[in-house]
Write a protein that binds this DNA or RNA. Structure first.
Length: 420
RNA sequence: GCGAGCGUAGCCAAGAGGCCUAAGGCGCCUGUCUGUGGCACAGGAGAUCACGGGUUCGAAUCCCGUCGCUCGCCCCA
């Protein structure tokens, strides 16, 4: 084979499209019902946008971005996440002049240079939402509710919601200092990775998977115990609101997430039978991000959800997803004289708004029928010498195996009536 | 970036140094059925055995490298 799809990428073949459409249609319906408008941003952006927002020390920026110099010498990056471009667009288009908050959703491809694995790709696709311009915890609750209901709408009910609060920019440094103190005391007991994390990314110490470190993490200072009064109030209200909406949440003190811009609320949704790449939805609040990108202080919150992982879980949990509908008609034709009339007929059916496949007349009628059957087409129109000379078509109902001859003009009229 | 396993037609696969000009099944095409699908039967097409190198008289089979996939770690959707 001369060429293959690049590592970590995949073709989404016609027979797989039904899952994508299923997810998209439900996500769109839900987002619209909450008043979200769709936004599409470019696949690549100025590299600096992501360095500033996601954070210099994060894995994403440090080793996973597709960054290159274009022919004009600009440094551009293939979008590694969905939030920063939406914030950039908010600023660029003066959306602070719109009624606040601004609610947006998106579908987009996302690129990260990672080692591929089940549920992890170098190009994947996300559905996401962002709410900009409202710091009220009711918005946090709304966004989490939307995520929660999306999963249920997709038939994913065996799932768990984890939440945490990692404080804001004022309270976090103090908390991190406490954390570092604690782990420094435990330095001899923690794994090598954690010793690195202690300097580079202390919050990540908490969700080390090594058994001995887990125990240490359980006893570690908790971010929710170090919130200032505003953040604490925010956290308390969020939990109150989630309870009021009957959304079952679990507090996970080790949930920190790997992007620097998060403040206060962070959350993830995972299937109960969690494998390695288990998170199907993750997000949080990012109240400092817009300001960091040069705007006025503007709060924001959102989440991203990976379509490939959603599809994986939909298949695994046995949710029935309907096949995409076949065209209603297949125009079978026999003999040279029928070629042009068949082509015309197929064309007129389509112009009347129905679906039609023009069968290759080079096959025997038997073969054409077989094709119609294999494609799941409900009606076959048969056009041969006899029909042409009589000005008729034979319409065969593939489900009942009955067929009748009708005048061509009558058939076309009935089609156009249905179309109108 | 680290560790492990795997790679035979579109798909699933037998095959463990010569009997491989590579079995079988699904799918595809054709015929039995001279203009009628789903079933059955018969036939056909489709594979430089992932790619490159090496060992050997001889390699799909053994060794090395590359690429890709899978699983775990890291991280994330």
């Amino acid at each position: 084979m001369l060429y293959q799809a690049p590592r970590g990428t995949a073709d989404l073949l016609p027979e797989e499209q039904k899952y994508r459409r299923y997810i998209e249609s439900r996500a769109v319906a839900l987002a619209r019902s909450y008043g979200y408008g769709r936004i599409d941003s470019p696949v690549f952006e100025d590299a600096g946008l992501f360095v500033r927002s996601v954070g210099e020390g994060t894995d994403i920026v440090e080793k996973e971005m597709y960054t290159f110099e274009d022919r004009g010498g600009d440094h551009v990056t293939l979008r590694p996440e969905g939030t920063a471009p939406v914030c950039r667009a908010y600023l660029e288009h003066g959306m602070h002049n719109l009624p606040q908050p601004v609610r947006m959703y998106y579908f987009c491809p996302v690129f990260r240079y990672e080692r591929p694995q089940a549920g992890r790709f170098r190009q994947h696709h996300q559905f996401g939402v962002e709410v900009l311009g409202d710091a009220n915890p009711a918005v946090d609750a709304e966004v989490i509710e939307l995520a929660w209901r999306l999963m249920h709408s997709l038939g994913l009910t065996d799932i768990r919601l984890f939440i945490n609060s990692i404080g804001d920019r004022e309270s976090r440094p103090q908390y991190i200092a406490r954390l570092k103190d604690y782990y420094t005391q435990q330095f001899d007991s923690i794994c090598g990775d954690c010793r690195n994390r202690l300097e580079r990314n202390p919050l990540r110490l908490l969700d080390c998977k090594v058994e001995s470190c887990r125990a240490i993490g359980e006893e570690a200072p908790r971010s929710v115990d170090h919130l200032d009064s505003d953040s604490l109030d925010h956290w308390d209200k969020l939990r109150e609101y989630l309870s009021a909406m009957d959304i079952p949440y679990e507090i996970d003190h080790r949930l920190v997430r790997g992007l620097d811009y998060y403040t206060r609320t962070v959350f993830e949704i995972q299937p109960v039978d969690a494998g390695a790449q288990s998170t199907i939805c993750g997000g949080g609040r990012y109240d400092g991000l817009i300001e960091q990108l040069g705007g006025r202080p503007t709060p924001g919150i959102g989440f991203g959800s990976g379509l490939e992982r959603l599809t994986l879980n939909i298949k695994r949990s046995g949710v029935e997803v309907a096949d995409e509908p076949s065209p209603t008609y297949l125009v079978a034709n026999v003999g040279e004289a029928a070629r042009v009339p068949a082509l015309e007929l197929a064309s007129r059916i389509r112009r009347a708004g129905a679906g039609a496949i023009l069968s290759s007349g080079s096959r025997a009628l038997r073969g054409q029928m077989r094709q119609a059957n294999a494609l799941g087409i409900p009606y076959v129109i048969i056009l041969g010498d006899d029909e042409i000379s009589r000005g008729e078509v034979v319409i065969r109902d593939m489900n009942t195996s009955s067929q009748e001859a009708r005048p061509l003009t009558e058939f076309l009229q009935s089609l156009e009536l249905q179309g109108a």
